[in-house]
């Protein structure tokens, strides 16, 4: 009975009231302005990627994405993201555990500092590693003597990618874990669970969607990073070019169709990312709604 009444209340509150909305012509113009703006700025770039990619036919398209340099670029992109994302997952879990579950001085500062890589230009992210490990850098002579290559090689690309994607997971998890509180973990510990058992049985299941959400965003950025990687890669074709750098080289050599063919793979990745992201958001909203409803009854 209580459920029926609250449901009815919900629908009547949702009904649009004349006093709190706009006259129809304003409403429709605002909707049209938004749709035109988004179509011009967002949809058109997405469409042109696929149009240009197939302009010279499917043969050119598949040749462009399967040639050895492209295949190597895809592999390198997967390697860079494959190392950067797990590292930042570990960092994100550690940072959010300490920040969300404990009270300590300087906590607010720590939250702000995590955002620093978002505020820094990607070019600067590349530059700082250049100053450390480049030929004229701080460790340059040492690395040269021991024949270790970091700049213009895979380790530099991985480092730059880690820097750029550093905040993603932690930013997603900190507010989530703060909201969840620590009663459940405290109960697990007082009942005798070990630290790791508590983490895998209590903490991880309750943050799994948020963590996945962070991983998806982190991965999209890692695979698409251009500025930072561009500084440290040296752009040796087929050796140190990731997909975005490979696109740049093709584009600058006027291989328009080939550049857009490789770009279409990254555009697909972006679309998959958006679909997964929306799916997770709806999932979270539904779980939240279920939790609220079960709390009411």
């Amino acid at each position: 009975m209580a459920g029926v009444v609250s449901n009815l209340g919900g629908t009547s509150a949702k009904r649009v009231q004349g006093a709190t909305t706009e006259v129809p012509w304003i409403r429709y113009s605002l909707i049209i302005i938004s749709l035109v703006f988004l179509a011009l700025f967002l949809i058109m770039p997405l469409i042109i990627v696929f149009v240009e990619a197939f302009r010279k036919g499917a043969g050119v398209y598949f040749a462009a994405i399967t040639e050895p340099a492209a295949a190597h670029a895809i592999k390198l992109t997967l390697i860079a993201a494959g190392i950067a994302v797990p590292l930042n997952v570990i960092f994100g879990l550690a940072a959010s555990w300490a920040i969300a579950k404990f009270q300590f001085r300087g906590k607010q500062l720590a939250i702000t500092l995590i955002d620093v890589p978002f505020a820094v230009s990607p070019v600067i992210a590349g530059l700082i590693y250049m100053l450390l490990f480049g030929a004229q850098g701080l460790f340059g002579p040492y690395l040269m003597d021991h024949d270790i290559r970091i700049m213009f090689a895979v380790p530099g690309i991985v480092l730059a990618t880690v820097f750029i994607t550093f905040p993603f997971i932690a930013r997603e998890l900190i507010p989530l874990m703060q909201e969840q509180g620590k009663e459940q973990e405290e109960a697990a510990i007082t009942l005798g669970a070990s630290g790791w058992k508590m983490f895998f049985r209590v903490t991880l299941p309750s943050i799994k969607w948020g963590l996945l959400y962070g991983i998806i965003l982190c991965n999209a950025r890692a695979m698409g990073e251009f500025g930072a990687v561009s500084v440290v890669s040296g752009k040796i074709r087929g050796q140190t070019t990731t997909m975005p750098l490979h696109i740049e080289i093709l584009y600058n050599e006027y291989h328009q169709a080939a550049a857009f063919a490789v770009a279409s793979l990254l555009a697909l990745l972006a679309l998959v990312t958006l679909v997964l992201k929306s799916g997770l958001e709806w999932q979270a909203a539904r779980e939240h709604e279920l939790a609220v409803r079960s709390a009411q009854t």
Binding site: L38, L42, I43, P45, L46, V49, L217, A220, R221, M223, G224, E225, F226, G227, M243, P244, L245, I247, E248, A263, L266, A267, L269, A270, L271, T273, L274, K277
Partner: peptide
């Protein structure tokens, strides 16, 4: 779609 600029690589 609003989030597209977050997901689409800048070079693309």
């Amino acid at each position: 779609v609003v989030d597209l600029p977050f997901a689409l690589p800048t070079a693309v």
